[in-house]
């Protein structure tokens, strides 16, 4: 295990971070949309969101990624592996984040919605300016938990041909015959990234106004 090999791992971890961060935020946006569909009162939208969540929670991420990777070319769409990876990860995390958010949306006190109605807010405005920010705050710890899971799950995207931290470690292990130090280093890098995420989240939680617990 040399410094050079470690540097290669660090470089690859940038790809891990890039893919994960993009997927987490895209997934969160999509999760809010799924929540809106479930709260719309429209049966088709409600059913569609439910079906989506059931599928992406019920099928292993690895299978999802392979499905998307193999399905898209069949219907005439060819995307680079980076895009495929981000789509796969964000759809999957959206399903989980939507479930997390459900608890938050259900926990928004009805009085806060009534006061928005009396202030002249439309349903959409109430959803955007009142319900969503409060639901996000209430479920913040669960959302961070999901973000950490996605950071680790991003190791699966190597199956669509993307070279991120895990794939790089596999490549290096195969070419240097030193699997142990290399995978140990990769594990350490994942651990450090997630510790930083957890620390930042804790700080953000303290700084966020309007958490019902305070």
């Amino acid at each position: 295990m040399t410094w050079y090999l470690f540097q290669l791992l660090l470089q690859a971890s940038l790809m891990t971070i890039f893919v994960s961060v993009l997927s987490i935020f895209a997934g969160l946006g999509f999760a809010v949309l799924l929540s809106a569909m479930r709260m719309s009162g429209n049966r088709v939208l409600f059913g569609g969101a439910g079906l989506f969540i059931s599928f992406f929670r019920g099928v292993p991420l690895l299978v999802q990624l392979l499905l998307i990777f193999n399905l898209l070319p069949v219907i005439g769409i060819t995307l680079p592996s980076l895009a495929t990876a981000i789509i796969g990860l964000s759809l999957s995390t959206a399903a989980y984040q939507a479930e997390n958010l459900r608890g938050g949306f259900e926990g928004v006190p009805i009085g806060l919605v009534e006061s928005a109605e009396m202030a002249g807010f439309s349903r959409l405005q109430t959803f955007i300016y009142i319900r969503t920010p409060i639901a996000l705050r209430m479920t913040f710890p669960a959302l961070v938990n999901e973000a950490i899971l996605i950071l680790k799950a991003s190791s699966l995207v190597s199956v669509v041909g993307l070279v991120e931290l895990t794939k790089m470690a596999q490549n290096l292990a195969a070419s240097t015959y030193q699997p142990l130090p290399i995978f140990a280093s990769a594990g350490l890098i994942y651990l450090v990234i997630n510790l930083i995420v957890a620390f930042a989240a804790r700080r953000a939680e303290d700084a966020l106004p309007g958490l019902p617990a305070k």
């Binding site: 006190p109 009085g111 806060l112 009534e114 006061s115 928005a116 009396m118 202030a119 002249g120 807010f121 405005q125 300016y129 009142i130 920010p133 409060i134 705050r137 106004p209 309007g210 958490l211 019902p212």
Partner: peptide, 25 residues
């Protein structure tokens, strides 16, 4: 309307609570 439980939006400051409807509505 003024409610028993105040029903202020917890993620906005006092100023934010009072100005929100003026801005959005």
């Amino acid at each position: 309307m003024v409610f028993q439980q105040f029903n202020l939006w917890p993620h906005m400051t006092a100023l934010g609570n009072v100005s929100a409807s003026l801005r959005r509505v």
